[in-house]
Computed example of a mutant assay.
Amino acid sequence: MNQKFSDGTKPMTVFAEVSQNYKPVINAEVWATLESDSGPAQTLQLLDNGAGADAFKDDGVYSRYFTKMKNGRSSLKVRVKNRDGQARFTFQKRGGAPYVPGYVVNGNYEPLKANYSNMSLTSSSTGESFEVVLKSTTPPNFPPNRITDLSAEFQEDTVFLSWTAPGEDLDQGTAKSFKIMWSFELKMLRFNFSNAHEVNISGISPQEAGSVEQHSFNLSFPIQNGTTLFFAIQSEDKELVKSEISNIAQASKILPHPKPTEVLEIDLKFVFIAIAVCLATVVIIGIIAITTWALTPRKPS
């Protein structure tokens, strides 16, 4: 058994891959338990929501941060349940190297040997132990995790934003506040975030980590056709520690061009020809009628 150490200054990332016959399983209920010889066990639900410690949503890899580590030796256990029969296979695949279930401490990876072959039953797996030696009696204050799934869209002149709520400490707890900024230029948000245009969100109270956040607002000007705007968010915790700037979301207003009114263009010369033909026909019919009347013999009175 390899000895793993942590000084508590960095969070521990726990991730477990749930699959059957190499097919990823989603909508499972996955719990990780950190058992310490110096205190009570800590239990945390691992999520496959593409936020916080989880890289991709619905890929069968369930992840979470452990931030409250204690002095002493600890071991990790993961339990998987088929929640109300909702677990199912997914066939989507991500590019790059595959995940290997386990945990990361101070940048060192420790594999977790797991076997979740029967999703109708509760399955458990135990990882190797590691030791925590805290540098300070004061627990570290981690910032809120970076928001990675911000999306934006226009509906008429209203902007709609959606993202997964970060936590007070990474993906744990509830952040204190958000700052939403927008710009006509992507580079402004990426390199000069604080000087972009700020959205008034005084009425927003952040929700618990992992919740879906949605916010709509109107800008101070009408959004014209062809307009593209960029949006980003930064979170802050109670100790005023700021998160990294979120992914930059883009919204564009592109309206389809109206169909041109079809105008029937008729050549005037054809109109004149048609009128002339009609008049000639009337004249000819009149001449024939008069001639016929004149040549018809009449009885003497």
Rank of each mutant, 00 (worst) to 15 (best):
E185D: 12
F217P: 08
V199D: 08
I223A: 08
T228H: 11
F231I: 02
I204A: 07
E185S: 09
F191C: 04
S216G: 09
F217G: 00
A196N: 09
I248N: 09
N195F: 04
N192H: 12
I254F: 15
I233T: 02
Q224W: 14
K238P: 01
T227I: 11
A249E: 01
L189S: 01
G210C: 03
I245C: 04
P256R: 07
R190V: 00
E185N: 11
L255V: 15
K242L: 07
A249P: 02
S202V: 03
S252H: 14
Q250S: 15
K253A: 12
N200R: 14
R190D: 11
L189P: 06
S220H: 12
N195G: 02
K242W: 08
I204R: 05
Q214F: 10
N192D: 14
F230G: 05
F193M: 01
W182T: 03
S235F: 07
I245D: 01
K253G: 12
E236K: 05
V199A: 03
F217N: 06
E236H: 05
R190T: 07
H197K: 12
S183C: 02
F217I: 04
F231Q: 05
V199E: 00
N247C: 07
F230L: 00
Q250H: 13
V241Q: 05
S252Q: 15
S252D: 15
M188Q: 10
N225T: 13
F231R: 00
E239P: 09
I233W: 11
Q214A: 11
S183R: 03
E244G: 10
E213V: 03
W182S: 00
Q224P: 13
E236S: 10
Q234N: 08
I201E: 12
N195E: 06
F231H: 00
I245A: 11
S202N: 12
F217M: 02
R190W: 03
V199K: 03
H215Y: 08
L189V: 04
F191I: 03
E198N: 09
E198F: 05
L255Y: 14
P206W: 03
E185T: 06
S235A: 09
E239V: 06
L255Q: 15
Q250E: 15
F230C: 11
K187E: 12
N192F: 06
S216F: 04
N200K: 14
Q234I: 08
I204Q: 07
V241W: 02
G226H: 09
L240K: 14
P222K: 06
D237W: 01
S246P: 05
E239W: 07
I223Q: 04
L186V: 05
E236V: 08
P206K: 00
V241Y: 00
I254S: 15
S220A: 13
G226W: 06
L240E: 15
